[in-house]
Nucleic acid binder design. Sequence first.
DNA 1: CAAATGTCTACTAAGTTGGTAGATTATATA
DNA 2: TATATAATCTACCAACTTAGTAGACATTTG
Lengths: 149, 149
Amino acid sequence: MLAKKTKYAIIALVRLAREYRKEPLQIATLAAEEKIPKKFLEAILRDLKNAGILNSVKGRYGGYYLSQDPETVNLATIIRLFNGPIAFIPCVTYLYYESCDVDKEEEFCGIRTFFKEVRDAAVEIFKKATLAEIIRREDALRASEKTVD
Amino acid sequence: MLAKKTKYAIIALVRLAREYRKEPLQIATLAAEEKIPKKFLEAILRDLKNAGILNSVKGRYGGYYLSQDPETVNLATIIRLFNGPIAFIPCVTYLYYESCDVDKEEEFCGIRTFFKEVRDAAVEIFKKATLAEIIRREDALRASEKTVD
DNA sequence: CAAATGTCTACTAAGTTGGTAGATTATATA
DNA sequence: TATATAATCTACCAACTTAGTAGACATTTG
């Protein structure tokens, strides 16, 4: 399951994507409006800045803002950053590769093939899930809700 | 990532599936041959018995054996038993349903749709991954290795 | 200078993971 | 019936992770 940190990161980023190219947003405002513990959010935003996804301005009227186009930031990146690898087992992982400790003869591992299928499917879907696409889906859902009544 | 307990469970089950309809296998033998800590394996096998997947005989020449056809036991069941839900977020989970604490207006949640896609893809693949199918893939890999040389 | 705001280090309580120890119960068979 | 064999059960533990919190410090604007 996703760590809360990852969830908070996604929520904060979607919000910051909605403010793309506007004034920077302050930690305190973001924390209050998205109901995220302020000090916890602080650490999350710092990580996102260190990862090059956000930028910040200090001092009065400062805050955080998205430093990349919302079309290019996707869930695969965010999940890897806060939650670790997307795969269920290390021997099918991108960037975190380790051989299965349990099974030295990896090439014979019939279990592995299924986990690789799952990982590949998940990565493909998460890569399509850009901040821009998430916002489009949210807006579409909101609109269809209104037309229903 | 998969807990070690889940990995061990899968390995033990694949082995027991290979012995299907033969003599029961003892914890000690299974532990030694599959390199699983004996006392840890003990707890795993008990859980599998309580879940109705294994049966056991006590006393001399006793041990554990698969009580279901290897064609009907799949990774989705095993992962859920030891690792919890397959989904990344609770609001798209089968049997463990909870609403997103972070977002009361679930129907508006654009993030959710992606996680649901991933979960559905994963469940579909894991359901096809029966013990029998894992063994077939293992044997196929082994055979193709031998023909290559 | 003062207020607002991000940055950094350190701490902590609760829960999970990956085990281990040891006593008990059931059964086959000599 | 005794004995060895094996599963069963309860309890414990160390290390790690998660979800925060506290408080001092640095930087910028007005």
